[in-house]
């Protein structure tokens, strides 16, 4: 008998009562059910700002350009990891993101090398969806938009379509069951640690700064 069979046998002996496989009923009510877009936006921005992230609600790609460029100029020198996705393409970031003489240069999945991760200054990616209740962004790994683009850099700019801002994780999972398949990372605020005397310090391993642009369409 191999280890697996031995363990399973022990478990079966140990289980107290052979219950019917009947999932227990849940009494907790999703507190965000019925929230309209305005409420969801408000809550998302509020939560994110408490976590020291920043958010901007914009109506068009034009409106996004100015504040985003300002963030790029403030970022430390180094590569900008730029994801490719339908939403991102429509904004044409690549064409205007860095000036000729800037200390920044754009890297995409086609040109990225692992060593870029050590110095990555900025990552620009599109979130698959968001959760208002906790100010969370959800990123699914895909060949054109790797998760490391959201994890490696010092500064992370995320773009989120307001259409896909859900109230709670329950709602996001219902709308897109793929979230718990493949590889997904949920991001709630910048990287943080409180391991030294519970003193909050941002930017332990992943981004120190997080900016979210919410696109109304």
């Amino acid at each position: 008998m191999n280890s697996k069979q031995k363990i399973l046998e022990r478990i079966r002996k140990g289980i107290l009562q052979e219950n019917q496989l009947e999932l227990p009923t849940r009494a907790f009510k999703d507190p965000t059910r019925g929230w309209d877009l305005e409420k969801r936006l408000h809550r998302f921005q509020d939560e994110l700002s408490q976590l020291r992230g920043e958010s901007f609600v914009v109506r068009s790609a034009e409106e996004l350009r100015h504040p985003m460029k300002a963030i790029v100029q403030q970022a430390p020198p180094g590569p900008i990891l730029l994801a490719e996705s339908v939403g991102m393409e429509s904004i044409h970031i690549r064409e205007w993101i860095c000036d000729q003489d800037s200390e920044h240069f754009v890297i995409t999945r086609k040109t990225i090398q692992k060593k870029d991760g050590i110095k990555a200054a900025l990552g620009i990616t599109e979130a698959d969806c968001g959760i208002a209740e906790t100010g969370t962004l959800i990123f699914k790994s895909s060949p054109s938009s790797p998760l490391v683009f959201s994890l490696w850099p010092r500064t992370h700019i995320a773009i989120l379509s307001a259409k896909r801002l859900y109230g709670s994780l329950e709602q996001a999972l219902t709308a897109d069951p793929q979230i718990s398949q493949g590889h997904t990372v949920m991001v709630t605020g910048p990287s943080r640690t409180a391991d030294i005397e519970k003193t909050l310090v941002l930017g332990m391993h992943a981004p120190q700064k997080l900016y979210v642009f919410i696109l109304l369409d």
Binding site: I7, T134, T136, S141, P146, Q181, H183, V187
Partner: peptide, 26 residues
């Protein structure tokens, strides 16, 4: 906290990680 900064949900090999193992411990 209401939610931790990062929650990873991993079912697949992805990114630079080409092989994943889970060891279930009794």
């Amino acid at each position: 906290q209401k939610m931790t900064s990062y929650v990873s949900l991993i079912q697949h090999a992805s990114e630079h990680c080409v092989k994943r193992f889970v060891i279930l411990l009794d």
